[in-house]
Structures are given as C-alpha cells and as structure tokens.
Amino acid sequence: MSASSEQPIVAPITDSITETDADELKSTLQLCMLPGLGPRTLRSLLDYFGTPEQVLTASGPQLAAVHGVGPKLIHTIRTATHHVDPNEILSWCREHGCRLICRGGKDYPQGLEDLVDAPPILFVRGSLDAADEMSVAMVGTRHASTYGLQQAERLSYGLARAGVTVISGLARGIDTAAHNGAINGGGRTIAVLGGGLGKIYPKENAGLAKAIAADGAVISEYAPHATSRAGMFPQRNRLIASLSLATLVIEAPDRSGSLITANLAAEQNRTVLALPGPVTSRTSRGTNQLIRDGAVLIQTVDDILEALGPMNRPVSTADGNEVRNPAELKLNELERQVLSAIGETSTPIDSVIAASGLPAHRVVATISVLEMRRLIRRLSGQYVSRV
C-alpha cells in the first residue's frame, strides 16, 4: 500500500481549480492543516498510502503501521473533520486573493523541492516568478541597532536595483528594513511568515505585507488563521534558507534565530554571508562569530554578487538577459557582449574578438575584468572559458 516517493505530493493546482480537482484539494487541505502533523510525518503517511484521501480514510491499525504515527495523531486524523474545514479555507483564499501552490506543480519554488520536509501547500499573496531563483535571504535581530537597520536597507536596496530578489521573514528589526530597502529599490521581495496570511505578525507590518504582495509575494505554509507561535519560526526559517542562493546575516547576537537560519542554509549547501559589526556590540557577536567560523565577510552589494557564484541553470531577468551567475547583473553592455561570446568550453580569444565585433584591445581588457569578477577563467594565454 505504499507509493513512490518520487511522485508529487498532490496534483499541481494553482489559480484554476476544476471540479475534478476540488475534492482532491479539499482532502489535501484537510490532511495538511491538521494540528500536530509535521511535514516529515506527513511525507511518511503519503509515501505509505499514496493520496491524502487514502490517509484520511485509513483505519487506526493501518495508520499505526507508519513510523512516527502514535495514538494521539491517529485520533486527530480519524477526526479530521472536527479540526479542519477545507471549505472555509478555500472561501477565505478566494475572498482575499490568496493562491494555493502545491508541491509538484510548475509554480512551486524550485528551491524547496529538495527539502525532505517541504510544505505540500503554500498559501501565496502576490506572485512567485522564475527570476526569484536569483535571490538572497537577509536576516537579523528584531532588536537591531541603527547601524544594522541602515546596512540592511542599504544592501537590500542595492540588491533590488541589481535585479536580485530579497527574502526575509517580515519580523521587526532587520527583516522590516530588508523588505523596505528592496521596495524602495524598485525590486522584488518575498516575506515568509511564521503564521497564517490572515494573522500577519507583527500587526504593525500589515501595511508592509500589502506593499510586498503588490510586486512580490507573501507566503506561508500555515492555514490562513494560524496564529504565530514560537515553534513556528524555526520552521519558517528553513523555507527562507531554502528559497535563497545565500543567506546574509546582518546583525545577530548569540543564540539568535538568525543563526539558526544560517546553519540551515549551510546544511543545504547554500552560501552563508555575514556583515561584520563592532566588536563591542552585543548585537553583532553572532555575525562576527559566523565570520570567524567561515562565513563570507561582505561589505558591499558587489561582495554579495561575487559570493553567490554560478547558478544551477540560467535565469531570465526582467530586461530579457539570461544570467548564469548573479555577478553578471553588474556588467555593462560591452562586458555582456564579450561574455556572451565566450563558451563553457575552451574558446580562442580570436574567436571572442570575431564574435563580439569589438576591437581586439577592448576585448582583451574586458576579458581581464571578467576574469577579476570570476565569471571566466583563462585556460592559457589565448584560450578562455566561462566559470
């Protein structure tokens, strides 16, 4: 009675919900939103039974056969209709312009697919774009100093201007400054909540959430009316880390939740960046320790773009360019022209000159710039290739 773990959790359902899909979606919501059912146990149940409906109709002994499922959870699943009303959730989503994006669907963020405990459903206000794969998480303390707030806004503004999506958690302090900086820079930002979309926390950021959704996205794995609790924020942090190419810690004291996000990013083979702070500042102890432990020290937007390195696959930007490395975002037209003439395998410099149509001295000088930016490498005196 088991199903292949390679199958998507549910059929991909996004904006349009047909009658055929409706029952499946309701079963999915009913199961996934049950209290006390975590993502890992949910994954085990679906691997064993195949579909949400089969889980919900399973007997007690059948449920008990799944690792991690005890008497309390069995009772919750068997009485699911007492705990979750999928019709109420769907009605709220329609009324408030909230999309449901299911794991396995084309709109589901690629960065989350590799998570063992990836959310089966995301509630989304706004839009998720393919270009959001080129993103940086910016996190830090809620009790930020003036220095921390200024640096978060400066760096997120610069990233937004460069075309990089800024991801954070809508919390007070650094998160708020990061979102505001991206909005002021005219770019995209994504807020990942530790509660439901209908219970924005903190309340004073409700207006900011609305502004983010206008040209970005506010997302949650929780039911709309779920109230934020302490245990939800570490869960939220794994999504922030997974959605981003790198996590930048702006300002964090010892034992900060931001350090948890940095550790999660490192576990997922994402780059960890940190902004140095005064050695006398309590709110910078965590970030300075991260640098001591191997995080990349950054001071400017160029530092961040350089640290991100090549991407797994090219991303199309708003201006129609195809980017393989975020550092390309800072190139001028001449530099792009030369880079586009260089292949991923050994390319003669004479061929680059011919393909670009530029004078030889311009091409040679530009190749040196691209090499310094670590976008290409020189294989010999007369051959180059992309990194």
Rank of each mutant, 00 (worst) to 15 (best):
R236E: 12
S135D: 06
A265K: 10
L275N: 00
P314L: 11
A265L: 03
V249W: 08
E153H: 02
A160H: 05
T345G: 05
A209F: 11
L243R: 09
A230R: 15
R255M: 04
D293G: 00
P35M: 04
C102D: 00
A307S: 10
S59P: 11
S16E: 13
L248D: 09
S284V: 11
S244H: 08
L239F: 13
D319M: 01
I13M: 01
D293A: 07
G216P: 15
L331T: 03
L25P: 02
E335H: 12
R142C: 06
Q62G: 03
T41V: 09
L331S: 12
Q30H: 02
T176G: 14
R154T: 06
R172C: 05
T81G: 05
E6M: 06
S168R: 12
T51P: 13
P86E: 01
Q30G: 13
A206R: 04
N263D: 09
A58H: 10
L305S: 05
S346E: 14
K203D: 01
G97Y: 02
R78T: 14
R94Y: 03
I77W: 12
S242Y: 02
S244Y: 13
A11E: 08
T14A: 14
F49A: 03
L370W: 05
N180F: 04
R154K: 05
Q30T: 09
G357K: 03
G126R: 11
A137H: 14
P52L: 02
E306V: 06
K72Q: 15
L305F: 02
D21N: 08
R94D: 12
E306F: 11
G173E: 07
I200N: 01
D302W: 08
C32T: 10
L239W: 14
G257Q: 03
L305Y: 15
F123R: 09
N180C: 12
Q289W: 03
I74E: 14
A230T: 09
S340I: 03
A355Y: 14
G181F: 12
S135C: 01
G277W: 08
P120W: 06
D114K: 04
L42M: 10
A177P: 14
T28N: 00
A217H: 13
P276Q: 01
D254L: 03
E333H: 10
D215Y: 14
N237H: 10
R154Y: 07
Q151K: 14
G148M: 07
R313T: 12
Q54N: 15
A160G: 06
L290I: 05
R285G: 02
E133T: 14
N332F: 03
C32N: 03
V323M: 14
Y222P: 00
